[in-house]
C-alpha cells in the first residue's frame, strides 16, 4: 500500500476543500474589479438609419468596445483550458499511484478554473445582452417621442397640407393644359426643371428602395415597422438572457460535480493515508458479540 507523507495528505485535503468551496460558488464569480465596459450612445441620427443598418451599427460599436475585447480573450482562454482538461484527463487515466492522484488533483483544479472562466464569459454575455436591451429601448423611446407629443394644431395643419398636395396633383394636368396648352406659351423654368428633377428623383428612389442596405425588415414575409423591428431585437436579447440563466444552472451542476469529485478524492487519499480498508472498518472491534468467540473453547 502506498503511504503518503503527512504534509502531502494535509495539502491534498486543504486544496480539495478549497476546490470544493470555490467550485460551488464558481458561477457567481465575476470581474469584480476593472469590469470591461461597453457604453454605446444613441443619437437622433441612428433613428434615421435604415433598420438593417441600425443593428449592424450597434454590432460594430460593440466589436470595437472593451467588452468585446474581454469576451474574445475569455473565449480563447476557455479554448486553451478545455484542451488542458482533455490532456489532463488522458494523462490521469494512463498514470498510476502517486502521480495519478496528483494528476486527478490537477484535473479538479483545472475544472474549477474552467468553470470560473465560463462564469466570467456568461457575465460578459449577460452584460452585452443587457446593454443591447438598454440601447434598443432607448431608441424605441426616441422613436415614440418623435411620433408623439405633437400639438393637435400641427396635425390639423399637416392634414390640410396633405389635402392641398392631393388636390394639386389631381388638378396639375388640367392647370398645365390651361396654362401651357397653347404651343406659343413656353413652360416656366420651374416647371421644366421640376419635371426633369422629379424624373431623376424617382429613378434615385427606385435605386434606394432596391438597395440591399435599405431592405425593410420582414416578419413572416411581411415588412414590419422600425418600432416592431426594435421590439424584435429586444426580444432576441431577452431570449439570450433567458438562455444564459439556464446555462448558469448547468455551470452550477458542473461546479457541484467538481466539488463532489474533490470530496471523493480527499476521502480516498485520507483512507489510503490511514491505511484501512473500508470493508474491514465496517466491523467494530468493540462489538461485544465479536469477542464471544474468544471466550468459547
Amino acid at each position: 500500500m502506498i503511504r503518503f507523507s503527512k504534509h502531502f495528505t494535509k495539502s491534498i485535503l486543504a486544496t480539495s476543500a478549497i476546490v470544493a468551496v470555490m467550485a460551488f460558488s464558481a458561477p457567481q464569480m465575476s470581474f469584480a474589479a476593472g469590469t470591461p465596459e461597453w457604453n454605446p450612445t444613441t443619437s437622433e441620427r441612428m433613428i434615421k438609419l435604415p433598420s438593417s443598418y441600425l443593428k449592424k451599427a450597434i454590432d460594430r460599436d460593440y466589436a470595437g468596445s472593451e467588452l468585446a475585447g474581454a469576451m474574445s480573450d475569455t473565449k480563447s482562454q476557455i479554448g486553451a483550458k478545455k484542451q488542458t482538461l482533455v490532456d489532463l484527463q488522458e494523462a490521469s487515466e494512463m498514470a498510476e499511484g502517486d502521480v495519478r492522484t496528483e494528476l486527478r488533483h490537477q484535473f479538479l483544479v483545472e475544472k474549477q478554473a474552467y468553470i470560473q472562466l465560463m462564469g466570467n464569459e456568461q457575465d460578459l454575455e449577460r452584460q452585452r445582452a443587457k446593454t443591447k436591451i438598454k440601447v434598443y429601448n432607448r431608441l424605441l423611446t426616441k422613436l415614440k417621442r418623435n411620433g408623439q407629443g405633437r400639438e393637435p394644431m400641427a396635425a390639423e395643419i399637416e392634414a390640410n397640407q396633405n389635402n392641398a398636395l392631393r388636390r394639386l396633383e389631381t388638378a396639375s394636368v388640367q392647370v398645365d393644359m390651361e396654362m401651357f396648352g397653347d404651343p406659343s406659351v413656353q413652360q416656366s423654368k420651374y416647371s421644366v426643371d421640376y419635371t426633369k428633377n422629379i424624373a431623376a428623383i424617382q429613378s434615385l428612389q427606385q435605386a434606394i428602395n432596391a438597395h440591399p442596405m435599405n431592405q425593410q425588415p420582414e416578419l413572416d414575409g411581411q415588412p414590419i415597422s422600425k418600432q416592431d423591428y426594435l421590439r424584435r431585437l429586444i426580444q432576441e436579447s431577452e431570449t439570450d438572457l433567458a438562455i444564459l440563466d439556464q446555462e448558469e444552472g448547468i455551470l452550477g451542476f458542473m461546479a457541484k460535480l467538481v466539488a463532489l469529485d474533490a470530496m471523493a478524492l480527499a476521502d480516498e487519499v485520507a483512507e489510503q493515508n490511514l491505511g484501512f480498508d473500508s470493508e474491514l472498518n465496517e466491523e467494530d472491534p468493540s462489538e461485544i458479540t465479536e469477542s464471544v468467540a474468544l471466550f468459547i473453547n
Binding site: 394644431m153 400641427a154 395643419i157 399637416e158 397640407q161 398636395l165 394639386l168 420651374y190 416647371s191 421640376y194
Partner: peptide
C-alpha cells in the same frame, strides 16, 4: 406649387 411641395412647411404651426 412650390409652397405646397415645400417640406419645411410640413406641420409648421
Amino acid at each position: 406649387r412650390m409652397v405646397i411641395r415645400d417640406p419645411s412647411l410640413k406641420g409648421s404651426t
